[in-house]
């Protein structure tokens, strides 16, 4: 198993660490501007000043204000939430497992969520959006617990290698059952194929208000653990040598990953790429200290999802390309560029 070579790269774009807070601030300002711009674009374009007005001086009698407040605002918030959530979850996973391929998918979390949702749809028939959410997050939680239990049997406890392997096996095992249901039941398949793509279309205040606190707790918890995660990312032995209770930190970090990834899957379906790509990008910018990686990842993830969602609404108007697909289109070339030029 290899450590991520990107993180070992000593050259980083923002040199002295004094500049890191400034960079984060700039990124956050950019994110807010991006969110506003995203709200201005859609089936009908709305001027950016109207967007600002709709938020700060809301007038329910104006149609444009109504659209912004009830449709576009919750949607961009949902996008920012899943972006931040998935990126931070991915960064934690890569730090804990010391594997550049790690993302929430690797702990079996996406597979567990998908299985719960598919099983629910199969047994119960159609579901409201929130139903998908509840199933997804419970599936994700169950998956992580099982993977953790599976990965920590035997001597040595939950080492990164065993955890990763356990996660991959669990993911493949549950996906097989998911596939079996989908192959045998065309009704479930028909509903699920639209959920699987990963989309923000029609995400309103209800789901944002339900999942918002979950993702927020996950983000906060992750930030509080960032120092310990940095230590663990240096290696299990070093962390133990420094007197850290690695098992506890690992378990807590896993809880944060469940909250973040589970909440995100609940909002938009299994959206890939953010959790994989953003941590690599961020490490190039700010080195290997997770106290900086995590906040940068949150902001960058939110920016990427907002950008992808906005593009998805624009390129094929009046049709929409789901955010999951746009993310792959935007993220893959960038990721490949990164791998090509920044990896020895």
């Amino acid at each position: 198993m290899q450590a991520p070579a990107v993180s070992r790269n000593r050259t980083r774009l923002i040199g002295p660490s004094a500049l890191l807070p400034v960079g984060l601030l700039v990124a956050a300002v950019l994110l807010v501007a991006g969110l506003a711009a995203s709200m201005a674009v859609g089936a009908a374009n709305i001027h950016i000043s109207t967007v600002v007005e709709a938020i700060f001086r809301y007038d329910a009698s104006l149609f444009d204000h109504l659209i912004i407040r009830t449709v576009r605002l919750p949607r961009v918030i949902a996008g920012a939430m899943i972006g931040a959530g998935l990126a931070v979850a991915g960064a934690i996973m890569q730090g804990l497992t010391a594997n550049p391929l790690a993302s929430p998918g690797v702990l079996g979390i996406n597979a567990g969520a998908a299985f719960a949702v598919v099983l629910g749809v199969y047994l119960l028939g159609g579901l409201p959006l929130l139903g998908y959410g509840i199933l997804a997050i419970s599936g994700a939680g169950a998956a992580a617990v099982i993977v953790y239990a599976l990965g920590s049997v035997g001597r040595g406890g939950a080492t990164p290698v065993k955890l990763t392997l356990a996660g991959v096996i669990f993911a493949m095992f549950t996906s097989a059952f998911t596939t079996a249901i989908l192959v045998l039941d065309s009704n479930t398949f028909d509903q699920i194929r639209f959920w699987t793509v990963g989309s923000l279309a029609g995400r309103g205040w209800d789901i944002v208000l339900w999942m918002g606190p979950i993702v927020a707790v996950g983000l906060l918890g992750a930030m509080l653990l960032s120092r310990q995660i940095t230590t663990i990312s240096l290696g299990q032995d070093i962390a133990k040598g420094l007197g850290q209770n690695t098992a506890l930190v690992r378990a807590l970090a896993a809880v944060m990953v469940i909250l973040l990834a589970g909440g995100s899957v609940a909002i938009a379906g299994p959206v890939g790429f953010v959790g994989l790509v953003i941590p690599h990008v961020v490490r190039v910018v700010c080195g290997m200290d997770y106290r900086w990686i995590l906040p940068y990842a949150a902001v960058a993830g939110a920016m990427l999802v907002t950008l992808a969602d906005t593009l998805g609404r624009v390129v094929q108007r009046p049709q929409e390309i789901p955010v999951g697909v746009m993310l792959a289109f935007v993220g893959a070339p960038f990721f490949i560029y990164l791998a090509r030029w920044r990896v020895r």
Partner: peptide, 13 residues
């Protein structure tokens, strides 16, 4: 991994 996930997204679309 990058190309595989691009492919996966395209297929589900």
């Amino acid at each position: 991994v990058g190309l595989a996930s691009l492919g996966g997204a395209l297929i589900s679309y």
